[in-house]
Design a protein around this nucleic acid. Structure first.
Lengths: 150, 150
DNA sequence: GCGATATGATTGCATTGACAACTATCTGGG
DNA sequence: CCCAGATAGTTGTCAATGCAATCATATCGC
């Protein structure tokens, strides 16, 4: 606390929200450019959706929304663009006509082999030289912050 | 690494980029609503700009862009909205006609007394129950990741 | 002093994202 | 069986963001 506020003077450099935003933006930018450098016309947000569908294909929009931490309207539009570029298809759920089943196209499935190695390289790069214990502490702390704000 | 990829199976829950995004989104949302709950019609991004100007008033758009980790077009537009709501004013720099000097209005200055306590409450809430040492490790790790991607 | 180049700022375009409103469909109480 | 309320999804609006392009002004080399 005292490292982020000195009286009513604000020390942004030490503020976790500021750091988190900066680090995430940088990760996102590097990821985006790395995908495109490999000729993969995909955004990091679409990559998350693909990752979920590779785990288990045929999910609803709501389920994708929750499991990727995006709200439903956002997921709906991410799927719009993925449908337009031919990565996924939406069809009406036979058991509930309100619901849509999102499935990977052949192309969406095929991307896995290309994207996963790029993602692994990126993770290796961003974690380089950081002790495993610090990474564990960071994850635990981030999860705790998340819960604190629930 | 192995906690995020199991073969070519992806475990999003352990992926730092995924965690960072989720935590930041939640912080941003809570901050936004907390400001508005107090009748402060301000976005978290505008709050960062104000914090910088409270430290030292009269900065250029570029300087604000760099010190808040936003790109220049983004800063330009954040300033548009802040100018519209009367928080800041832009004027031409006397020493360099390309440059604009951004200054706080009376209202922009006055917000400090209201916003800082709300921000301090938020920081206390998000850090609640987390050992100081873990917060330090987390900050150090985030900075290291940031540098790794430079 | 002039032209090439660099820099500061803005604008255009597309995506992500929050929130509210709306449509379609389902489910439960009577 | 029908209506009220809940749920799934989409659309509208607005702000934040990235990238490319543009415009104005400065600066550097000759």
């Amino acid at each position: 606390m005292r490292d982020q506020f000195d009286g009513d003077q604000i020390i942004l450099e030490n503020a976790l929200p500021f750091l988190l935003h900066g680090v995430y933006q940088r990760i996102r930018g590097v990821t985006y450019r790395e995908f495109h450098r490999h000729g993969l016309e995909i955004t990091p947000e679409q990559w998350i959706v693909l990752a979920r569908l590779w785990q288990r294909d045929g999910r609803s929009v709501s389920e994708l929304s929750e499991s990727t931490l995006r709200d439903r309207p956002t997921m709906s539009r991410i799927l719009d663009s993925m449908e337009k570029t031919g990565l996924v298809a939406r069809s009406v759920d036979r058991e509930d006509a309100r619901s849509r089943v999102v499935t990977l196209t052949r192309e969406g499935k095929a991307l896995r082999k290309k994207l996963v190695p790029v993602a692994m390289e990126l993770v290796a790069r961003l974690e380089a030289g950081i002790p495993e214990i610090d990474l564990l502490t960071t994850r635990r702390t981030l999860r705790r912050i998340f819960e604190n704000l629930s």
